[in-house]
Nucleic acid binder design. Sequence first.
DNA 1: GGTGGCGATGTTAGCCCTCACATTCTCGGA
DNA 2: TCCGAGAATGTGAGGGCTAACATCGCCACC
Lengths: 343, 343
Amino acid sequence: MARVNAVGDSEHSRAAAPSIRDVARAAGVSHMTVSRVLNRHPNVSEATRERVQQAITDLHFRPSRTARALAHGSSRVIGVLEATGARFHGPASTIVAIEDAARTEGFSVMIAVIDAADAASEAAAVEHLLDQGAIGLILVGPGTTASGSIAEAASGVPLVVMHAAEGADRGAADQFEGGRRAARHLLELGHTAMAHIAGPAGWLEAESRARGFAAELAAAGLAPVSVAVGDWTAESGYRAGLELLAAGGFTAVFCANDQMALGLLHAAREAGVDVPAQLSVIGYDDISEAAHYAPALTTLRQDFPELGRRAIAELLSQLGGGPAPEPMPAPELIVRESTSARP
Amino acid sequence: MARVNAVGDSEHSRAAAPSIRDVARAAGVSHMTVSRVLNRHPNVSEATRERVQQAITDLHFRPSRTARALAHGSSRVIGVLEATGARFHGPASTIVAIEDAARTEGFSVMIAVIDAADAASEAAAVEHLLDQGAIGLILVGPGTTASGSIAEAASGVPLVVMHAAEGADRGAADQFEGGRRAARHLLELGHTAMAHIAGPAGWLEAESRARGFAAELAAAGLAPVSVAVGDWTAESGYRAGLELLAAGGFTAVFCANDQMALGLLHAAREAGVDVPAQLSVIGYDDISEAAHYAPALTTLRQDFPELGRRAIAELLSQLGGGPAPEPMPAPELIVRESTSARP
DNA sequence: GGTGGCGATGTTAGCCCTCACATTCTCGGA
DNA sequence: TCCGAGAATGTGAGGGCTAACATCGCCACC
């Protein structure tokens, strides 16, 4: 960390920023004409426009978004609620994509971190964002609780909940289908006894994945042998794995994300269980590290950046500014080394 | 992704938000008295204060930050420049900590993503943030280039560059010392021939780590056998590892982050090189997965949340609002299974 | 030559706050 | 009893911008 600019480090000794009126004076027109040039109003003569542009350049004029927002009544700020879990790769890249797409559309992104376990923290974050004049919110994180405190706190403002859909709702990733595909893959490999390490309660995607998995098994007349609950971290996967392995009785495990799968791999190694010879493991997300785990992880790929883009599209559509996004394609199965035919 | 609130979903049919004057009218005072209550001005009688508070509650009044910013001339918005690399765990958790600390201090955080390789993108992001009225910027990402386009674009505004310090500058993580410690550990294990997988050019921390590593070796009369350059991803570590291993001539490798170390582990496995028996590997960051790699990774721990907190402290101090933060403790060596005595 | 119409430009009034400067009220001391 | 200090409250003027309406030319047309 280093200080780079001192305050008032500027070229000129920080004169008050020029306003639209300064520009007007310099260009010899009224401030309104300047405003028109700024907003590309058609009825401005070419000569005038150029003169104003020149003055703008000369004075290093930069219109104040604040004033504009005040006059205009709307801020073009989008609030992103970032669950602490968002520090994981997937959500983090989603946010990157959201910002990118938002800026392209002329919006700004303000973030607020929420502790997904704490309704008060959620409400406070929403309040904070709304205080800033956010015109819409995107929640990256647990979706179940969103129907509760967040949606309530955000009443009156469009709210898009990501990672939380089911049945291909408006361009969302279909987590349910992802769970089914995991099961199908394992089924096709001949497994009949499978365990599941689920994501934490409260996360809609955790629940959808688990239900999709169970549904596909049910269709084959089966059910998960046992289900452990983790908190998305490798550590929790490791612990859940140790427990599961101690009990035994299955030949394959579906983990609700790649990190937990990594933890399970670790637990298996420690328990002397060979993956995939004795145990098949399948993850979810296809984070970029998954291909380098030992063994390389079979998983379901989610396109996080695309998810981010669609979140913005969805929000803009709600705001009345564009078409609703297409449904997302279902997560894609990436087969690597961690799954094999039933021993 | 799901739409949760429709526009105008609110309880009351979205009447224009009440203003300070509406509150004033309801409380039977002047708008200025309301303002004073809002700003905790001492000279307001208890009775009046309560009356106003009541009106505020009744009307669901929420002061407009926009108007306040305009009148006040300053926005309390902090801009965070997020390099695309920030989608990795470390930087992502730093940002989470930044937001948390900022909000506690009454600031808001606006983000803009930069493509670290592209000066134009950097300048655009800075412009964007400045347009929003950001009063200070924090750069999470490559620091070398910051002295260039970013610092230039941000002239006149305090800029804190994170992850970029050396010699314990103002509460920064000392990356140079981290590199030295990695070398020292390997040296103590008896290694004399070591390679390095560095982070990409342009990232100050990549350079600092590499130089710290080389400096410590130099003090022992040694030099790195070979240096490969990655881009922080596991994939790049894997490729660099393959190359390095093909050439050979070393018994230990220092990787500039944990992901690249994971890639190297993968490459070693493929090449039939046993870690740590034949090759010691040390990473950097201690991301939460590192303990679960195969083998568990020896690494240098960085306290990312603390880094985020100090970034805010540093910025506020530059803004004139607080004491400069203490220097960060040096990264801590975490010894796990991936390093052992020289074969 | 008068006039309607339209393009180019200007004027005024806010948006919702805060600041600087009144004004009013209250109370203690000479 | 009256004055002044200081607390409590109010008034007016912006801050930088946009929206709505007003004005001014100018040209075409009869």
